[in-house]
């Protein structure tokens, strides 16, 4: 199974805000435990008191970790697509192929109010706009062929102009010429994690996302949802295994390790998800999960030992990167 750990940097109830040293310790502990990725939250609705914005935090964390995937939330209202693509392509290079972008299909009122869009978007406009936005970001990230850079000093050829491609996107909400002024990143495109899906978003998600985060529900409904999403991915011309479905589950230190392992095993064996995004009730619960639940899952052969590859895509069993 694939395992993500949610890292909420905003101060939740009765929790102190983490400083960078504490966040580093937390992410390194998750790395030592062999977790696929941490999913870093950004601004919550309502004021948080976290001192960091997620993409800047990701860049810093990339320099103090080696293996673990690092996913940052970034709003499609707060950034222009060209700028967001530059940020994440750059983060992917800085992290040597471990970066992911967490986008939400749900519109936040706070972004609209602070980013000169006081009226917000209608739900259907926001949906179409987000779909267009994601296509632009992914297209821009593929603008440079993997072998475009030549570094030929004596010949005076830095790159091969034939291997740099304009996007020339002209859509309903954006027009973006490209190309990106950041090199192709180690994963080709940073891993796209989508959440906040409602019914009409499912086709967009299964067409574009690498990872879909879903709320926890009954095993039965989760199974139906999982099959439906994989079917949609196939219909979009993708390998159903190219979209990983992770279920958000909450974990508290006093949840019994065997019971938690049982629950995860059941959902996985019933094929109702590809893994889980663990939402800790307190940051300290990571130790309990790593020391008590993970060994049990490993004993049952449900979680791999250590990291096999170097990129987040390789951790997740996704294609892409490595000069393909």
């Amino acid at each position: 199974m694939h395992l993500a750990i949610s890292l909420n940097i905003a101060a939740a109830d009765k929790q102190a805000v983490l400083d960078f040293g504490e966040i580093k310790t937390f992410v390194r502990a998750a790395e030592a435990a062999g977790i696929d990725m941490v999913v870093i939250s950004d601004s919550a609705e309502g004021l948080s008191s976290a001192p960091f914005e997620a993409t800047t935090l990701l860049a810093a964390l990339a320099t103090v970790t080696d293996k673990i995937g690092l996913v940052a939330a970034a709003s499609t209202v707060a950034h222009q697509p060209y700028n967001l693509a530059r940020r994440f392509a750059s983060l992917d290079i800085i992290s040597h192929g471990r970066a992911g972008w967490h986008a939400t299909m749900a519109q936040g009122s706070r972004e609209a109010a602070n980013f000169s869009r006081p009226e917000g978007f209608s739900d259907t406009d926001f949906r179409r706009r987000t779909a267009e936005y994601i296509d632009i970001v992914q297209g821009l990230c593929r603008g440079w062929d993997a072998d475009a850079l030549l570094f030929d000093k004596t010949g005076g050829r830095f790159h091969d102009p034939e291997k740099m491609h304009l996007l020339d996107h002209k859509g309903e909400f954006f027009s973006v010429r490209g190309p990106l002024n950041v090199a192709r990143s180690p994963q080709d495109t940073p891993v796209l994690v989508l959440s906040g899906l409602s019914g009409p978003d499912l086709d967009i998600a299964t067409r574009t996302a690498d990872v879909i985060l879903l709320e926890d529900g009954s095993t039965e409904s989760a199974k139906i949802r999982f099959d439906d999403l994989k079917r949609r991915a196939t219909a979009a011309g993708r390998d159903p295994d190219a979209v990983k479905i992770l279920t958000n589950i909450s974990f508290a230190p006093d949840d019994g390790p065997a019971a938690t392992a049982d629950r995860l095993e059941t959902e996985l064996r019933l094929k109702s998800c590809d893994g889980f995004n663990i939402q800790l009730t307190a940051h300290s619960a990571l130790d309990d999960f790593a020391d008590r639940v993970l060994p049990e899952l490993r004993r049952r052969g449900l979680v791999r030992e250590g990291y096999r590859g170097a990129t987040l895509r390789s951790h997740l069993g996704l294609a892409g990167g490595g000069g393909q």
């Binding site: 993409t55 800047t56 935090l57 990701l58 860049a59 810093a60 700028n83 530059r86 940020r87 392509a89 750059s90 983060l91 290079i93 800085i94 440079w144 850079l149 790159h159 002024n181 950041v182 090199a183």
Partner: peptide, 10 residues
């Protein structure tokens, strides 16, 4: 090509 500077400086 080059790094986007905010991520670089972070």
């Amino acid at each position: 090509i080059g790094f986007e500077p905010i991520s670089l400086l972070s």
